[in-house]
């Protein structure tokens, strides 16, 4: 470790809250630029997708269990299950599969 974990945390706190405060204090009118609005719209989904796969297959002891949990989660969410049930389902699937794998 050459970097301090505390400095990481402080930078995270400052940056995250900076983003939250800036628009509320400075921007008093709506963003009109179509590209920027569109870009901001896609960002959360793209980030989460990039961070989910293939990381989910590396988080579990068995990569296959992680992959199956991913697909099950996608199907469950597609069928309308909300955050918490989808999350629990993914955990259960990994737990059960790893009993056998």
């Amino acid at each position: 470790m050459t970097h301090s974990t505390w400095i990481y945390i402080i930078l995270m706190i400052l940056t995250t809250n900076f983003i939250r405060i800036i628009p509320l204090t400075l921007i008093r009118s709506e963003i009109k630029n179509r590209f920027i609005v569109s870009f901001l719209y896609y960002v959360p989904y793209v980030t989460l997708a990039v961070m989910t796969f293939p990381a989910i297959t590396e988080a579990t002891d068995s990569p296959l269990a992680g992959l199956i949990a991913l697909f099950s989660g996608i199907i469950a969410a597609w069928m309308g299950l909300s955050l918490f049930p989808v999350s629990v389902l993914c955990c259960l699937i990994v737990f059960i599969l790893e009993l056998f794998i």
Partner: peptide, 21 residues
């Protein structure tokens, strides 16, 4: 370890539930 492995995917489950709908 087995339970930790299973619970590790909880966060990804949340992510999936946010991006799929």
């Amino acid at each position: 370890a087995r339970i930790v492995s299973a619970l590790s995917v909880a966060l990804y489950g949340m992510f999936i539930a946010i991006i799929i709908p």
